[in-house]
Each structure stands twice: as C-alpha cells, then as structure tokens.
Nucleic acid binder design. Structure first.
Lengths: 227, 227
DNA sequence: CAGTGGTCTAGACCACTCC
DNA sequence: GAGTGGTCTAGACCACTGA
C-alpha cells in the first residue's frame, strides 16, 4: 500500500547489509533490540518486527534471554516427501493390496483421551490396516479417528482418502522416527528379528480438534523415504 | 520462551477454527481488524499480527482498503524438513558440540568407486564426526568427500557448511530409513541394546559429479523429524 | 465520506539466561 | 540483578478503497 520503504524494512535491509558485508559474520551476535533502538532512533516494536522477520526467514537466530545471532549460511531447505502409501507403492510400479486386520468403535477412556487432547468419552473408531506391495507387507497402519469430527467414516474406505475428502482444510502434523517393533507388529509386517521400524506419525487437526491420529509402521529393510 | 499460548496465537487459532468449521468458507470475508478488536477485547496490534501471519502462511488474503478473505484451500505438499544437525539442535535451544572421531584421505578402491559412480582412484576424504546436543550424542556423521570436486575441504570445518559454501548450486538426493546400528555406531551414540537408528543418507552432486556422500545415524530414542 | 489494512510509537510486564 | 527477547497496549497517522 505504501510506496516508500517501511521503517522496519529499512532496519531489515540495514542488518542484511551488515551481514553481507562481513561486518557481522555467521555466529556473531547482533546488537540487542535496545541497542538498535538507541542507534537508529526508532521504537522497539519496529526493531522487534524487523529482527523477528529475519529470524522467520532464517537469516538470524534468536535466543530469549541471550541475544540474536547471525545464522549460519543456509544449506537448501532440504525437504523430503511423505506420500500416502498407495502412491508410494504405485511409484514403484507394484500392486497395492490392503486388508483390515482389526476394527472397532468405542468411547475414549481417560488416558487415551488425554493423550489426544480430547474429552473423555469421545467416540472413536480404531482400525489396524495392513498394506502390501505385491503381497509383501510394507506398512501397518494403526489409526484412531474421532467420529465427532468425521461422522462419515466407514471401514470400507482407506482413511487417508476419506480424510482428504472430508476435511479439505485440515492441517497435518507429521513426525518420522525409528523404533523397534513390538512382537505383533513384527509378525504382521513379516520382519526378521533385530530389524528396525520406520515410524511415521500423522496427527490431523481440523478447526483445532484432533480428527485422526495414525501411526504408520514400516519394515526398515523394505521401506525408505526418498526425494 | 513462553509455554502458555500467546494472545496472537489464540487469535490465529480462533480464526483457523472458524475456517475449519466451515463458518467462514473459502472466499468469505473475515471480520475487520477493528471488529476483531471489539469482539475479542484485545488491542489492534495483536489482531494485526495474528492476521498478518495467517496471510504469510497463505491461509488468508489481505487487501488494503478492502478487507481480509479466507484463501482458497492449499494443496498440501505433505513434506517434512530435514534440517542440518546444527539447525536441528539450535531449534531445540541446546548447544551443539562436535568432534572428529576419525579422519583420513585415500584413493577410492574399485568397489567403493563403483558404489559412488566415480572412477577408481578418485581422491577421497573420509570423516567420522560425532554431534551432540548438550553433550548427549544425537548424530554420527559418516562422510566421504570427493576431493576433485571440493578441493577446498579441510577437517576443521563442518562438511555441511563447507559444501553449502563451496558448491552453492549443488543438488542433494536424500533418503530416510530405519536400520539397526552396528556395534561401533551404537557405542559412539550411547544407544541401548535393541534401540533403532534413524539413518539419513545425503548424496550431493555438482554438475553431475558426486561431490559427497554422507550417512547420518541418529539414536531412535533421541532424534525425530518433525514439521 | 467512512472503512480498511499498513505502519509506528512509547511505554509496559513477563520469562528466561548469565553472572 | 542486569540484560535479553516475547508479548501486549492504546493510542496515532497514512494510503488506499468503495459507495
């Protein structure tokens, strides 16, 4: 809306110039907000916004109670895709088969409810689904679905597809880690002793409510994320 | 720094909730800043920050002099970030310490050369680096570097930083998998028996030539990718 | 014209870290 | 305790839009 540069933009550029010129090398401490206020003669909120945006852009690291520091040069954003299992199998040119190992509906007991941040007694669906490529198991999907958030859920459909259609605006929080399998998981996934599991956890939230939590177990020897 | 929700975060969530619940469908106008100020009883700067960040995140579109509108649904790329270990540790507010466990230079024997797609006899540097957050090991970096592609390499610097600076245009191919650790890895990473390793492999190529291959081992109980 | 977002100010309180 | 960043307030002026 404004043609002339906003003051916080000027401050950002001022800091970037100092970094680019080598005055403030990576790792160096940059002046505190109060020092910049004094030096530049502007209000602290303006300085704060400038430095905060530089932090969001990864040019600066801020540590509360300590100071702000020039970030190390960015190595590329480096992301890796986490495709739905059907897509992962299709990408390898194999056939996707799946079967429901177990399925139930019940009301959340207090411990489970607390874990999911839902009121106790919330109606949940549970499904244990085994996915295979050419009859070799590659994923065990252990899924809880909040039926209040997704009343249309039915066991005849893959939860991933169903959620994408039922909750187009949902946000997904994902984690990836390595865990040893428990006995049943190892058995269902036809894993050797000693073999590790790649575990992907997906928490789907819609309107701030947890709609689904999935734990996806994969045999370490047959599943690998790639970009 | 603060564990309890900041007020602007609450406002963001409030708006996201309304969008998620369908109260405010895509394209709909959301209340003006002044309306939100009156409705929520907070200052305009706080409302402004909330809505401005939602705009940055692509959930809302703002038009000066007109109003703010719910953005059309984003096709969610479903990716997860793989930060350099220094950044991962910094993001948790811990101190990053590292030491070179082993380091060598030699010419690639045929098997290794074939594995990397390089001519036999290529000069390579090898480094085994242990990374710790607050003295607790979280990554064992096992790295080969093609000295023909990166002649400037020296052991005094982290390979990640060095590569980012020496080969700004390089492409990285990454994989993520779960493996059981071998004895030495488990020992260096201070892992319990049975514990699994999250293994990230990075192959850096510059101008079609493999410049570096890194295998990054992480203790499953202490390292997790997240978005 | 009234309403919108964009920006800025000069204070303030807090939690945290380091000494 | 002094210093840091994190947040919030209650005002303000501006450029822009649309009836």
């Amino acid at each position: 809306m404004t043609d002339i540069a906003a003051r916080y933009q000027t401050v950002k550029q001022h800091i970037l110039d100092r970094i680019g010129s080598g005055d403030w090398p990576p790792g160096a401490r940059i002046p505190s907000e109060n020092e910049l206020v004094a030096e530049l003669g502007i209000s602290r909120m303006t300085v704060n916004r400038a430095v905060r945006e530089l932090a969001q852009e990864g040019r600066v690291v801020r540590l509360g109670g300590v100071g702000s520091f020039v970030a190390e040069p960015q190595s590329a954003p480096e992301t890796i895709a986490i495709p739905p299992i059907a897509q992962w199998i299709a990408g390898r040119g194999r056939a996707h088969r799946w079967r429901v190992v177990e399925s139930a509906r019940f009301e959340a007991r207090p411990e489970l409810a607390r874990l999911y941040g839902l009121p106790a007694g919330t109606r949940l669906a549970f499904a244990l689904i085994l996915h295979a490529e050419n009859d070799r198991p590659v994923q065990l999907e252990e899924r809880h679905i909040n039926l209040d958030a997704v009343p249309s859920y039915a066991e005849t459909e893959l939860p991933d597809d169903m959620l994408a259609r039922a909750l187009p605006g949902a946000t997904t929080h994902t984690t990836v880690e390595a865990v040893p399998p428990n006995r049943r998981t190892a058995e269902l996934l036809d894993m050797k002793a000693q073999e590790s599991c790649l575990l992907i956890t997906k928490r789907v939230e819609n309107a701030g409510i947890v709609a689904s939590i999935a734990r996806l177990f994969h045999p370490g020897s047959r599943f690998r994320l790639e970009n």
